[in-house]
Computed example of a mutant assay.
Amino acid sequence: MTFFSFLLLLLSQTQPAPAQTPTQAAPTKESIPWSTQRPLTWSDFKSKPTPADRLAALTSGNIDVQVGCTDFVFSSSVKAVFLPKESWVRDASKASPELLRHEQLHFDITELHARMLRQKLTLVKLNCQHLNPAFSNLTKAAFSAWQREEARYDQETNHGLNAEKQKFWEAQVQVRLAQLVAFAQ
Protein backbone atom coordinates (compact mmCIF):
# COMPACT_ATOMS: atom_id res chain seq x y z
CA MET A 1 0.00 0.00 0.00
CA THR A 2 1.14 3.53 -0.53
CA PHE A 3 0.46 6.83 1.12
CA PHE A 4 -0.34 9.55 -1.41
CA SER A 5 1.16 12.94 -1.04
CA PHE A 6 1.85 15.61 -3.57
CA LEU A 7 4.21 18.52 -3.15
CA LEU A 8 3.60 21.48 -5.38
CA LEU A 9 5.80 24.50 -5.14
CA LEU A 10 4.63 27.23 -7.47
CA LEU A 11 7.23 29.90 -8.06
CA SER A 12 5.55 32.29 -10.47
CA GLN A 13 8.14 35.00 -10.27
CA THR A 14 8.54 36.85 -13.58
CA GLN A 15 11.23 39.32 -12.46
CA PRO A 16 14.43 38.43 -10.61
CA ALA A 17 14.02 38.87 -6.85
CA PRO A 18 15.94 41.70 -5.23
CA ALA A 19 19.11 40.61 -3.47
CA GLN A 20 18.36 39.43 0.03
CA THR A 21 20.41 38.39 2.99
CA PRO A 22 20.65 34.59 3.02
CA THR A 23 18.52 32.96 5.65
CA GLN A 24 18.67 29.47 7.01
CA ALA A 25 16.36 27.26 5.00
CA ALA A 26 13.92 24.94 6.70
CA PRO A 27 15.22 21.37 6.81
CA THR A 28 13.94 19.25 3.94
CA LYS A 29 12.45 15.82 4.33
CA GLU A 30 14.83 12.96 3.71
CA SER A 31 13.92 11.39 0.40
CA ILE A 32 15.27 8.88 -2.09
CA PRO A 33 14.84 9.80 -5.75
CA TRP A 34 13.56 7.05 -8.03
CA SER A 35 16.31 5.34 -10.05
CA THR A 36 16.64 2.14 -12.05
CA GLN A 37 20.05 1.78 -10.39
CA ARG A 38 18.72 2.10 -6.83
CA PRO A 39 15.88 -0.27 -5.91
CA LEU A 40 14.37 -0.02 -2.44
CA THR A 41 15.60 -2.21 0.40
CA TRP A 42 13.91 -2.90 3.71
CA SER A 43 16.50 -0.71 5.42
CA ASP A 44 14.99 2.27 3.56
CA PHE A 45 11.74 1.89 5.53
CA LYS A 46 12.48 3.98 8.64
CA SER A 47 9.07 4.52 10.24
CA LYS A 48 7.10 2.16 12.49
CA PRO A 49 3.51 0.98 12.09
CA THR A 50 0.92 1.99 14.65
CA PRO A 51 -0.98 -0.74 16.53
CA ALA A 52 -4.01 -0.01 14.32
CA ASP A 53 -2.08 -0.63 11.08
CA ARG A 54 -3.04 -3.97 9.57
CA LEU A 55 -0.73 -3.95 6.55
CA ALA A 56 2.62 -5.70 6.39
CA ALA A 57 4.31 -2.61 4.91
CA LEU A 58 3.56 0.89 3.70
CA THR A 59 5.41 2.84 1.03
CA SER A 60 5.18 6.60 1.13
CA GLY A 61 5.96 8.18 -2.19
CA ASN A 62 5.71 11.69 -3.52
CA ILE A 63 5.72 13.51 -6.81
CA ASP A 64 7.73 16.63 -6.13
CA VAL A 65 6.81 19.33 -8.65
CA GLN A 66 8.64 22.62 -8.80
CA VAL A 67 7.88 25.22 -11.44
CA GLY A 68 9.02 28.70 -12.14
CA CYS A 69 8.96 31.55 -14.59
CA THR A 70 12.05 33.62 -15.23
CA ASP A 71 11.79 36.41 -17.78
CA PHE A 72 8.41 34.94 -18.78
CA VAL A 73 9.96 31.55 -19.62
CA PHE A 74 8.30 28.56 -17.91
CA SER A 75 10.47 25.80 -16.41
CA SER A 76 9.65 22.77 -14.30
CA SER A 77 11.15 19.92 -12.34
CA VAL A 78 9.20 16.75 -11.56
CA LYS A 79 10.70 14.03 -9.36
CA ALA A 80 9.37 10.77 -7.97
CA VAL A 81 10.72 10.33 -4.45
CA PHE A 82 10.43 7.74 -1.69
CA LEU A 83 9.98 9.04 1.85
CA PRO A 84 11.82 6.74 4.29
CA LYS A 85 10.58 8.47 7.46
CA GLU A 86 6.96 7.90 6.39
CA SER A 87 7.42 4.32 5.11
CA TRP A 88 7.49 1.20 7.24
CA VAL A 89 7.63 -2.57 7.28
CA ARG A 90 6.12 -4.46 10.18
CA ASP A 91 9.02 -6.91 10.57
CA ALA A 92 11.81 -6.67 7.99
CA SER A 93 13.39 -9.92 9.17
CA LYS A 94 10.20 -11.81 8.26
CA ALA A 95 9.20 -9.74 5.20
CA SER A 96 9.32 -11.64 1.93
CA PRO A 97 11.09 -10.60 -1.27
CA GLU A 98 7.63 -10.65 -2.89
CA LEU A 99 6.39 -8.01 -0.44
CA LEU A 100 9.40 -5.82 -1.21
CA ARG A 101 8.70 -6.21 -4.95
CA HIS A 102 5.12 -5.11 -4.29
CA GLU A 103 6.32 -2.03 -2.41
CA GLN A 104 8.93 -1.27 -5.09
CA LEU A 105 6.19 -1.32 -7.71
CA HIS A 106 4.32 1.37 -5.76
CA PHE A 107 7.44 3.51 -6.15
CA ASP A 108 7.70 2.53 -9.84
CA ILE A 109 4.09 3.65 -10.37
CA THR A 110 5.00 6.96 -8.77
CA GLU A 111 7.84 7.33 -11.31
CA LEU A 112 5.46 6.35 -14.11
CA HIS A 113 3.11 9.18 -13.16
CA ALA A 114 6.02 11.60 -12.75
CA ARG A 115 7.05 10.76 -16.34
CA MET A 116 3.49 11.25 -17.53
CA LEU A 117 3.42 14.67 -15.87
CA ARG A 118 6.81 15.60 -17.37
CA GLN A 119 5.42 14.64 -20.77
CA LYS A 120 2.30 16.78 -20.28
CA LEU A 121 4.37 19.75 -19.15
CA THR A 122 6.44 19.58 -22.35
CA LEU A 123 3.36 19.29 -24.55
CA VAL A 124 1.27 22.02 -22.94
CA LYS A 125 2.45 25.55 -23.58
CA LEU A 126 1.93 27.30 -20.26
CA ASN A 127 1.78 31.08 -20.27
CA CYS A 128 3.71 32.56 -17.35
CA GLN A 129 1.38 35.54 -17.10
CA HIS A 130 -1.66 33.27 -16.80
CA LEU A 131 -0.17 30.14 -15.25
CA ASN A 132 -3.23 29.29 -13.23
CA PRO A 133 -5.73 27.70 -13.53
CA ALA A 134 -4.12 25.70 -16.38
CA PHE A 135 -1.18 24.51 -14.26
CA SER A 136 -3.35 23.81 -11.25
CA ASN A 137 -5.82 21.78 -13.33
CA LEU A 138 -2.99 19.83 -14.97
CA THR A 139 -1.36 18.87 -11.68
CA LYS A 140 -4.67 18.05 -9.98
CA ALA A 141 -5.57 15.71 -12.84
CA ALA A 142 -2.11 14.09 -12.70
CA PHE A 143 -2.33 13.57 -8.94
CA SER A 144 -5.83 12.15 -9.22
CA ALA A 145 -4.78 9.65 -11.92
CA TRP A 146 -1.79 8.58 -9.80
CA GLN A 147 -3.96 8.09 -6.72
CA ARG A 148 -6.54 6.04 -8.64
CA GLU A 149 -3.88 3.79 -10.17
CA GLU A 150 -2.18 3.16 -6.81
CA ALA A 151 -5.52 2.18 -5.27
CA ARG A 152 -6.39 -0.06 -8.24
CA TYR A 153 -2.97 -1.74 -7.98
CA ASP A 154 -3.52 -2.65 -4.33
CA GLN A 155 -7.07 -3.77 -4.99
CA GLU A 156 -6.27 -5.95 -8.02
CA THR A 157 -3.20 -7.55 -6.43
CA ASN A 158 -4.75 -7.81 -2.96
CA HIS A 159 -1.73 -5.87 -1.66
CA GLY A 160 0.61 -8.22 -3.51
CA LEU A 161 -0.94 -11.47 -2.24
CA ASN A 162 -2.35 -12.37 -5.69
CA ALA A 163 0.90 -13.50 -7.34
CA GLU A 164 -0.58 -13.75 -10.84
CA LYS A 165 -1.97 -10.21 -10.77
CA GLN A 166 1.25 -8.95 -9.16
CA LYS A 167 3.30 -10.33 -12.07
CA PHE A 168 0.84 -8.79 -14.54
CA TRP A 169 1.17 -5.37 -12.92
CA GLU A 170 4.98 -5.64 -12.78
CA ALA A 171 5.12 -6.40 -16.52
CA GLN A 172 2.64 -3.66 -17.45
CA VAL A 173 4.36 -0.97 -15.42
CA GLN A 174 7.76 -1.88 -16.93
CA VAL A 175 6.30 -1.63 -20.45
CA ARG A 176 4.75 1.74 -19.67
CA LEU A 177 7.98 3.06 -18.10
CA ALA A 178 9.85 1.98 -21.25
CA GLN A 179 7.30 3.76 -23.44
CA LEU A 180 8.00 6.97 -21.53
CA VAL A 181 11.79 6.61 -21.33
CA ALA A 182 12.16 9.94 -23.16
CA PHE A 183 10.66 11.54 -20.04
CA ALA A 184 12.93 9.81 -17.53
CA GLN A 185 15.27 12.11 -15.61
Rank of each mutant, 00 (worst) to 15 (best):
M1L: 04
M1W: 01
T2G: 04
L7T: 01
T14L: 11
T14A: 08
A19L: 11
A19D: 11
A19V: 11
A19N: 12
P22F: 09
A25H: 13
P27Q: 14
E30Y: 13
I32G: 13
W34A: 15
W34P: 15
W42N: 12
K46C: 15
K46M: 15
S47I: 14
A56V: 11
L58E: 12
N62T: 10
V67S: 07
V73E: 13
S75P: 02
V78M: 13
K79P: 03
K79G: 01
A80S: 13
P84R: 05
D91F: 09
A92R: 01
S96I: 06
L99Y: 03
L100D: 01
H102C: 06
E103H: 11
L105Q: 09
D108P: 03
M116G: 12
L121T: 10
L123N: 12
K125M: 09
L126N: 09
L126P: 10
N127A: 10
A134F: 06
S144D: 07
Q147S: 09
Q147G: 04
R148C: 04
E149D: 09
E156L: 00
T157E: 03
H159S: 01
G160F: 01
A163G: 00
K165R: 02
K167M: 01
W169R: 00
Q172N: 06
V173L: 05
V173F: 03
V175K: 08
